[in-house]
Design a protein around this nucleic acid. Sequence first.
DNA 1: TACCGCATGTAAACGGTTACATGATTAC
DNA 2: GTAATCATGTAACCGTTTACATGCGGTA
Lengths: 186, 186
Amino acid sequence: VLGLLAQEPMSGYDIRRYLRSLNWLVDSPSFGSLYPTLRTLLEEGLVTVDIVLRRDKPACKIYSVTRDGAAALEEWLEQPAPAESSLKTFVKRLVLAGNLSGSRLIADLEQRRAQISSHQALLERAATSLDEGADRKRRLALDYGLAMAEAETAWIDETLQSLSQPRENPGPAAAAANRKAGSGGT
Amino acid sequence: VLGLLAQEPMSGYDIRRYLRSLNWLVDSPSFGSLYPTLRTLLEEGLVTVDIVLRRDKPACKIYSVTRDGAAALEEWLEQPAPAESSLKTFVKRLVLAGNLSGSRLIADLEQRRAQISSHQALLERAATSLDEGADRKRRLALDYGLAMAEAETAWIDETLQSLSQPRENPGPAAAAANRKAGSGGT
DNA sequence: TACCGCATGTAAACGGTTACATGATTAC
DNA sequence: GTAATCATGTAACCGTTTACATGCGGTA
């Protein structure tokens, strides 16, 4: 929440709408947890409110991060994601990449790449132990996991490369285009 | 839990170990929720216990599904995943693909493909609305989402194809090989 | 006037994790 | 004898969802 407000002051309703638009990537909290969270942040002095009256719509409360809030956010972002760190954690941090320092972002990507490798190893072990004549359906989840791991690794590698060459402006769009063109990748 | 026990009778500890090996795909419950769950299933008559004493290891309780349990599982599996259905739901069902009827599995895959399309559309809308000169880092999450959507769609299409041609035995392994060979995709 | 989308909020219920407690068996 | 792994279990805590409650503003 702090991260989103740092990108742009918003109301609780806005946060919800924004997170809903990323529905697939991150799960958006219900109002029942979102509003109390904002209340807490306010009481802790990490955000301030600004009640905005509009003639066309009902009034809303726009929240902005304070200096303390920005410091708290930075503290959270700068401490590397915990070693176990799930996909959810990674994606959350990716959503806040705009607030992340370049080196921190690269470290996150590399950490994720390493985690995928170890997960891949686990899945491969599981696949071989299940091996031989086992019904295809039983292996589907493993195959899915391996395919996704491969795809994610490829994306991370592309992204790391494009981040290390900031002179050009290939950006994610160009990377996507490369993918579509099917230029032989690793 | 019922689905795993249907594949093979196991102890709570085994379930945990198995789910841990799929760590990345599904999150394994803590013992604090797993054991009470088994207790409940037992009380509901959906599973039975068998205390097994071994000389080399401590005793353990092997759970097996009863007829009622199998019926309950089937009921759960046959009702298509709810329309919203998250990635988690999809993967969970994929892990249990062995217990799923062929037509149900295909329906699940197709439903997921459709969901990805709509999510893709959302992400693309978000990407264009954020468009123009926006800092690359701000778009990273969107790009990630789109890349993963693409990869998942590709995997689903391959899998659907291989499932519809059961005469050959290409299986997931062959599909993976195709991917690696980089034969022109969709 | 009735309804729908916007916007905020609260309280109960629920489910899961964390932390704790116990004990058998093997290996150092 | 002591640590580590295997194995099971309980209770407090905590965050989230669900359901409910309220009200403004536009529109059919």
